[in-house]
């Protein structure tokens, strides 16, 4: 599985138009010199060898845990990914948690109070939030809170290189809010529809017949609605942890998404393939995690002892 992904990634990246060596050589180099510089760069990067040879070399070092070095910055790709992972996990994790913290109660209430004003309001807000592109919301946020009100920073993680938790939280507010809104909007709908399905089940009526109040009945329904939610989350988390390309770019957040975009622009093959591998591994891990979670939330999946 991993080998297929590795081969696919490697070939696809190299099939893409553009030559990384070209982008490394200054455009204003003298015409005669330029050709030679490009050739030298190509040799230095190992791009003069045939693609299969390149692959074997790359894959060999990959097995030793070496993802190669960035063409443009010459940093080790593994280190680069690790450096970017922290900020992305922080940003995306906070957004995901915050979004779910909003979506779960709102979705449950919308389902329980179906067809009331609360439900309609939640539905309308979530449609609007889903319809607004995140870049627009991000720029709106910057305009209102950073430019006009001057209460929040517009970009970056820290003010001036120093790492201070309060400072970091301060910088997180805007990007996290923008991303959390999208998460909340999407998951409110998932949770509402999942809850509606469960609330209509016979066992809920049976629980009410036992004398349970509305809260207890709702909790039973919620517990059951987690089963389909695990599937959605397993698909959602890898996409999320690979970074929000647009939002990271707008807020100059030094995360995965920003790194990937920059690498693509300069055809930084090792970084692109490294990023691709990271996403692939993430998908695999999340699917594995989902399978494990199923056995936690759904006793029917547990194998018979």
């Amino acid at each position: 599985m991993f080998l297929i992904i590795a081969v696919g990634l490697f070939v696809l990246v190299r099939l893409a138009p553009g030559d990384p060596a070209e982008t490394l050589v200054p455009i204003d180099a003298a015409p005669g010199q330029r050709e030679e510089l490009v050739k030298a760069a190509r040799e230095q990067l190992g791009l003069d060898k045939p693609v299969p040879v390149q692959f074997v070399l790359w894959f060999g070092s990959l097995l030793k845990g070496d993802l190669g070095y960035s063409f443009s910055t010459h940093q080790a790709v593994g280190q680069l990914l690790l450096d970017r992972l922290g900020p992305t996990v922080l940003l995306m994790g906070s957004a995901l948690v915050l979004g779910l913290l909003i979506a779960i109660p709102v979705g449950i209430i919308a389902a329980v109070r179906r067809d009331t004003f609360v439900d309609a309001a939640a539905g309308t807000v979530s449609v609007i939030a889903l319809a607004i592109p995140s870049f627009f919301l991000a720029m709106l946020g910057i305009y209102v809170f950073a430019v006009k009100l001057r209460v929040l920073p517009s970009a970056g993680m820290y003010f001036s290189g120093e790492s201070d938790v309060g400072d970091l939280l301060y910088h997180l507010i805007l990007p996290v809010s923008v991303l959390a809104l999208a998460v909340a909007a999407a998951f409110t709908r998932y949770i509402r529809s999942g809850m509606l399905e469960q609330l209509g089940q016979d066992y809920i009526r049976a629980i009410v017949a036992k004398g349970a109040g509305p809260f207890r009945a709702t909790m039973h329904a919620f517990r059951n609605s987690l089963i389909p939610l695990v599937t959605v989350l397993a698909l959602y988390i890898p996409a999320f942890l690979s970074g929000a390309v647009v939002v990271e770019q707008i807020f100059s957040w030094p995360g995965m998404g920003q790194m990937a975009v920059n690498a693509l622009i300069v055809r930084d093959y090792p970084v692109i393939t490294g990023f691709g591998l990271y996403v692939a591994v993430l998908v695999l891990i999340c699917n594995l995690l989902a399978d494990v979670l199923y056995t936690v939330v759904d006793p029917r999946v547990r194998t018979a002892r």
């Binding site: 066992y203 049976a206 039973h220 517990r223 059951n224 006793p299």
Partner: peptide, 9 residues
């Protein structure tokens, strides 16, 4: 078959 909550003992 449907009267009991499937995820509770």
């Amino acid at each position: 078959m449907t009267t009991l909550d499937p995820v509770v003992q």
